[in-house]
Design a protein around this nucleic acid. Structure first.
Lengths: 337, 337
DNA sequence: AAACAAATCCGAAACGTTTCGGATGAAGAA
DNA sequence: TTCTTCATCCGAAACGTTTCGGATTTGTTT
């Protein structure tokens, strides 16, 4: 492995000069620089980023801490599309991305700060962690620049990007209300997700606008899983036969809900309208195609990466970025008869 | 940021002793070790992996070089599911994963070796690169341990994991032949993909077994894209009206093919049988559900990671790992009338 | 001729570890 | 007593960079 020293002796200059030449400093003669560059190419030199990072005290790497990058999440498509957005932005910068795993039962159980401090990442993006995750606290305590996805917390060194979940859920339910539905169930995610809290709030708001009182027994938690949503929808429909429509906090759960409905011989949308949340690729392909709240998952990741990089490169303060959502009306909803 | 020196002075010993204590060497007194560990905890110490890597000349990081981790590939689900498998295995090891981007129009156009040498990765997994990619050559020339996914090349320091694409394609086409089809079209990927070459070979083999001569005009390239496959299927069906079935080299293309068929008022599977390849999540949800060759994408990634780690940790030689595929018969194929 | 400025170069320290080769002292063996 | 052995520790070099502060040479100004 050729180093800066080899180049120095080969070119007959000092290591200092080689370093400065290769890094484009001005106090090196044009010819010397030429010579050095040529030698560097001949010796097939590439700088050791470890050594560089060590002395400069910054690694040019960003941490990506996603919880739940597994088989199920791949099917969902949400997590990976966000990752794809992050990746896309980062690809155009000088940074590299290192993947930290959290949800594993890994032996070396490290804390967030340990993870980051060891690898000396310049900043971190966190995705999919729960509200009761100890990492959350650690992030706030440490002073590593970071940005959250879908978790609205911020401080001097942490920002976030999310979508307007209250508004999104509200629009979903308003859509059902406008179609004449009055008994609207909800399959939510789980208690440890910020988005679930917000989407429930949106659900309540919409009902309120139509003067309908909120009934606790109409909402169930499906923990964002297809199977679980199937199960919960089953019991919802059995317990509450008056329900004519259901709002699901994710498309995957909506798919589970539709399966359940079909199992109970409901026709969708004739007997039961279903609206989802996310607009994953699957949603437009299934039948009936899914009415849903579309959020730009790619942009979620892209913006997060952009914010983080700007914080690092230009010392910009963290922001709170809220993206718009859009109601996509397809075939899983219809007016009440 | 607290270093080993701080601990040393605080504990009243030398840095050597701190290092050896923290790394579990035997020549340090039990009490001293206790003391050192305690001080380390008090000062909230975590080792600087950069410094460590520099002197040990190994970074405990693996490179993941995927070409085509973007919006389209997310929809496909293939790329990300492989990544998920890689991630799963790596999560249980001491390694971290750094993501290299290639397909971007990034300014810093680095060569493969530059990328790896700079970051000093211990090994690399390459996925989705084309047969004419200059990286391929570089990998063989360099001596960094690496494993390819779906590219059957190997050497002293490179192995691969793939599926039996000839066999898979053959089974797909045999399935159609058994259903009575004799005019079988094929929508392949592109010329720069090993798997395309192999799947075409499987297609030919199956035809041969039934004594059917291969006709060049029955196979088109859809470059693994839904839109492209749609277009190619359109022209195929128009040019070759005798065709009663088509084998697509990916599920996404099969979906495009089905759209085209529907557009031309073909019923699937009554007028046209379609079989895909991959078995992505979408395939079982669309209607008609897709008959396809299922490959274990997760295992592809998992095995690749496992192989690489074993090469690194136990100096094992690289292997050639071929996974089995499985024909999944669903509703997009039927017997000829 | 002396003084100054600009251009170009370099030595050495620093970043935070690991590790080689010994040093020290105490205990046991001769 | 002297020699060995063992347990425990440490100094210093090394990894490959960057960077601070200065040195040298050349040309320009007074």
């Amino acid at each position: 492995m050729t180093t800066i020293k080899h180049i120095a002796s080969q070119a007959g200059v000092s290591v200092t000069t080689v370093s400065r030449a290769l890094n484009g400093y001005s106090d090196v003669n044009a010819e010397t620089r030429k010579k050095i560059e040529q030698v560097a190419k001949e010796l097939n030199y590439s700088p050791n980023s470890l050594a560089r990072s060590l002395v400069k005290n910054q690694s040019e790497t960003l941490g990506l801490l996603v919880s739940g990058f597994n088989k199920e999440s791949v099917k969902d498509g949400f997590t990976v599309e966000v990752m794809s957005g992050i990746n896309s932005y980062i690809a155009e910068t000088q940074y590299d991305l290192v993947l930290f795993n959290t949800d594993s039962s890994k032996q070396r159980k490290k804390t967030y700060t340990q993870l980051c401090k060891e690898r000396r990442v310049d900043g971190v993006i966190l995705q999919g962690i729960k509200t009761d995750d100890p990492y959350l606290e650690e992030v706030m305590e440490s002073d590593i620049p970071c940005v959250f996805i879908d978790i609205p917390v911020s401080s001097k060194h942490v920002g976030y990007v999310s979508t307007d979940n209250v508004e999104g859920a509200r629009n979903a339910v308003l859509h059902l209300l406008e179609l004449g539905h009055r008994n609207i169930g909800m399959i939510n995610g789980h208690k440890q997700a910020f988005v679930s809290k917000e989407r429930l709030e949106g659900y309540k708001q919409a009902l309120l606008e139509y003067g309908i009182s909120f009934k606790d027994q109409l909402v169930k938690d499906g923990s964002f899983g297809e199977k679980e949503a199937y199960r919960e929808t089953m019991s919802l429909l059995k317990e509450q036969p008056d329900v004519t429509s259901v709002f699901c906090a994710s498309d995957l759960m909506a798919i589970g809900a539709i399966s359940a409905a079909k199992q109970l011989n409901y026709c969708v949308p004739e007997d039961l309208s279903v609206v989802g949340y996310d607009d994953i690729p699957l949603s437009s392909y299934i039948s009936p195609s899914l009415t849903t709240i579309s959020q730009d998952k790619f942009a979620l990741g892209y913006n997060a990466a952009e914010m983080l990089v700007k914080m690092l490169k230009y010392q910009q303060p963290p922001e709170q970025c809220i993206l718009k959502t859009e109601l996509k009306i397809r075939s899983s909803t219809s007016a009440t008869s």
